[in-house]
Design a protein around this nucleic acid. Structure first.
Length: 466
RNA sequence: GGCCCCGUCGUCUAGUGGCCUAGGACUCCAGGUUUUCAUCCUGGCAACGCGGGUUCGAGUCCCGCCGGGGUCACCA
């Protein structure tokens, strides 16, 4: 049997971090088994579905490298088929019309709640003669669920989970306006798409019972289920915006690399021994549902940052330049010429080691591409007091006389100077750094001079001696 | 409230009855390398929710309690 998985978000919001992980697990599972991974947009609720949300989901998936294998399926395109299936159930006596008004239903729930009874539809129309139907009330179609016995799910993550059928009520499968509800459409679509493995959030576990009943009523083979635990915030509550339930595009904007986010998400709720840094190839090879942790995990930015730092150091310099270029040009207010880009690329090795996110990179790279005179920040100003400026002035002629403008040569010159005058290297390096970069921290100062080039370096140094 | 699920360092996790004096990673702290910062290296703090069983032996199995979460729509 060929494995077919699917990621099925409802386009009512952006692709949030939990959804991204669900997509990842579906993708990984399909890849591991040499199967297919599909995307279905659950837009049966047209009122709440938006084009923007659909785009955000597709783009987010794309960015993460989790694009679907086939064409995107829109659930709303299948409503006729859904209604047909509902009719089939009705004809077979496995569903029935219910004429209860929303108000009646609300009252029913309210009463159950106040009496401390389970909140369920009471089956009022289940066995009632349709002839008693109130005139002019369009009915909904409810599924005639089995009332005895148990529904058992062999969940690939949760193990065997059982629920007594008496706990489940007769759900609405077709609304009064003829549109299908979620419960019906997922079953029909998953069946029609040949989905063999439904991997989704834990919050769907209770739905799985009802969906299984539906499959059985239709004489279809239910898929295998795998319900993965939800991601929680740092206070252990359901993930909300303030703990990182942001759209993946927000992570992108914050300066995270897709491979870092993927690695982080993979390790959140899944483990393979002591392995932490896991490549996509290895993940595909190792991933399976039985190693998914059954308890919810908390989202932790500190670990994501650490992982991101790792992948940044690993990333190609040219790619990083491409990534930060648009942002850099925006803060600069003008386009960068080739010389500027080349400086960035040559300086990137030293730059990327000092940044946790590409956002830090943008700030830290700025000094390489700004025009003289370099603005000095507060700390740089302190370093460049009269004494500091004097040091720069003292070294300036030495540097100007350098035969080759290379880091190693420059370092040799300055070290010799420090030794002769009996001062520590740091005491002269810091004023140079402040003058060259406008800041107290930067990549190694001789590397900076090398990248900046003779003319620019000398210019920046002489700027502070005036 | 009914039903379902979960419970190892602050966080992510390893652990499937003896290899556990509970391991790794992140964070934090202390050192070291270093021209700054960062990287890197060394070391340290830190956990089996509680109570009963079962067993020669329990983090690992069973029961109870406590705690946490999910779900109960003509939303998905």
């Amino acid at each position: 049997m060929t494995v077919v998985t699917r990621f099925a978000p409802s386009p009512t919001g952006f692709l949030h971090i939990g959804g991204a992980r669900t997509a990842l697990f579906n993708w990984l599972y399909a890849r591991h088994h040499g199967g297919t991974y599909l995307l279905r947009i659950e837009d049966t609720d047209r009122k709440r579905s938006t084009k923007e949300a659909i785009d955000a989901i597709v783009d987010g998936l794309d960015w993460l490298g989790l694009s679907p294998d086939g064409k995107v399926v829109y659930q709303s395109a299948n409503t006729v088929r859904h209604a047909k299936i509902a009719q089939r159930l009705l004809d077979a006596g496995k569903a029935y019309h219910c004429y209860c008004s929303p108000e009646e239903l609300a009252a029913m729930r309210e009463e159950a709640r106040t009496n401390g009874k389970p909140v369920r539809y009471n089956g009022y129309w289940r066995d009632r003669d349709p002839a008693e139907a109130p005139p002019g009330v369009p009915p909904v179609i409810r599924f005639r669920a089995p009332q005895d016995g148990n529904t058992v799910i062999e969940d690939l993550v949760q193990g065997t989970v059982t629920n007594a059928n008496k706990h489940l009520d007769d759900m609405v499968i077709l609304r009064a306006d003829g549109t299908p509800t979620y419960m019906l459409s997922v079953v029909v679509d998953d069946n029609d798409m040949g989905v063999t493995h439904v991997i989704r959030g834990d919050d769907h576990l209770t739905n799985a019972y009802r969906q299984t009943q539906l499959y059985l009523a239709l004489s279809w083979k239910p898929p295998a289920f795998g319900h993965i635990p939800l991601i929680h915030g740092s206070d252990n509550a359901k993930l909300s915006k303030r703990h990182g339930a942001l759209g993946v595009e927000a992570y992108r904007e914050m300066g995270y690399l897709p491979e870092a986010l993927r690695n982080y998400l993979l390790r959140l709720g899944w483990g393979h021994g002591d392995d932490e840094i896991i490549s996509t190839e290895q993940a595909i090879q190792w991933f399976d549902l039985n190693a998914v942790i059954r308890s919810p995990a908390r989202f932790d930015f500190a670990k994501l940052d650490n992982l991101n730092g790792h992948y940044m150091r690993q990333a190609a310099d040219s790619r990083l330049v491409e990534l930060i270029l648009p942002h850099l040009e925006k803060t600069l207010g003008h386009r960068l010429n080739e010389a500027g880009k080349s400086r960035l690329e040559r300086g990137m090795e030293g730059l990327k080691e000092r940044a946790k996110k590409t956002n830090n990179l943008i700030e830290n790279a700025r000094f390489y591409v700004i025009n003289r005179p370099v603005p000095l920040d507060k700390k740089a100003l302190i370093v460049l007091d009269s004494k500091g400026r004097q040091k720069v002035a003292d070294i300036l002629p030495l540097l100007s006389a350098a035969k080759n403008w290379e880091a190693r040569v420059l370092e040799g010159l300055v070290r010799a100077y420090a030794e002769e005058t009996g001062i520590k290297l740091g005491q002269v390096a810091q004023p140079l750094r402040a003058a060259l970069t406008g800041s107290k921290t930067s990549p190694p100062i001789f590397e900076v001079m090398d990248v900046l080039g003779r003319e620019e370096s000398l210019g920046r140094l002489s700027d502070v001696t005036k």
